[in-house]
């Protein structure tokens, strides 16, 4: 029985790779069309060569770890701050009235547009980069925390009150589980934002260890192959983080999912 199932499962998981394979084939074809296309679409063999070169030199690891570390620190800071503010806004009308307008206004300003201000006030080094990452993670966390708590159905609350739940118990048993999906959605959005903000910050602000920095030096020499390797690494790491989060949230929300 199990012997029959395995090939089927393997086949099934391969189905998902069909589209990517087609796209890769298209890429390889395009890169060999002419010099202009080879300029933008680095041939896959060159990309592979660049990958080996970077691994051999240790460059890839150093920069990868640098980016990851930066992104995690910023993400943690931003997420914690976001949840805190979201909680505050959901439970205190005064906080909501005061914070909400400011939050909505500042949230809409693109992070890149704030670069000159951040550069002036925080300088061009690590603090600025961390600030941008934290800010990128902060926005969705606040929104989703607040919305999550706000959207909890009135009836759930009434049920909780009917059971005679005190405030803390109400929070733990009714609000938190009901708001958890939103919180996790917020986190699922915060992670890619924070990751891209980390790379973006490395591109904008000064040098350090990071995939963004690696991309920048590759751009100087027009090493598109290195850039593609970086882009792929960034993508893979981003996927990895999202997958981890997805798994975690599936487990946490097992009681709620219907399919």
């Amino acid at each position: 029985m199990s012997k029959q199932k395995i090939p089927l499962r393997v086949l099934k998981s391969l189905r998902g790779l069909l589209l990517p394979a087609v796209l890769l084939g298209l890429w390889e074809y395009t890169s060999h069309r002419d010099a202009a296309h080879a300029f933008a679409f680095a041939p896959l063999e060159q990309v592979y060569g660049a990958l080996r070169e970077l691994l051999a030199g240790g460059d890839l690891w150093v920069n990868l770890l640098g980016s990851l570390q930066r992104a995690s620190t910023g993400l943690l800071t931003g997420a914690v701050a976001g949840i805190a503010i979201g909680l505050l806004m959901a439970f205190s009308r005064i906080a909501l009235t005061l914070i909400n307008p400011l939050y909505q206004g500042i949230r809409q300003v693109p992070l890149l547009g704030l670069t000159p201000l951040i550069s002036l006030w925080l300088g061009n080094g690590e603090p600025s980069k961390l600030f941008i990452i934290a800010l990128a993670a902060f926005y969705p966390m606040v929104l989703n925390t607040y919305e999550g708590l706000r959207q909890v159905d009135l009836r759930y609350r009434e049920v909780g009150q009917a059971y005679g739940f005190g405030r803390v118990l109400l929070f733990r048993r009714v609000l938190l589980p009901a708001a958890l999906p939103s919180l996790l959605t917020g986190l699922q959005q915060a992670v890619p934002f924070a990751w891209l903000a980390a790379i973006g910050g490395e591109l904008i602000f000064n040098a350090g260890a990071g995939l963004g920095n690696l991309m920048m030096s590759a751009e100087l020499g027009a090493r598109m192959d290195v850039i593609v390797v970086c882009a792929i690494s960034i993508t893979l790491l981003g996927i990895g983080m999202s997958q981890l989060l997805s798994l975690a949230s599936s487990r946490l929300l097992r009681w709620q999912h219907i399919r």
Partner: peptide, 21 residues
């Protein structure tokens, strides 16, 4: 030595001078 990124040398140095960094 205060490093600045190649992509925005001018702006960053000017901002650093302005903030006395």
């Amino acid at each position: 030595w205060v490093p600045v990124a190649t992509s925005a040398v001018a702006s960053e140095v000017n901002e650093d001078f302005a903030s006395h960094n």
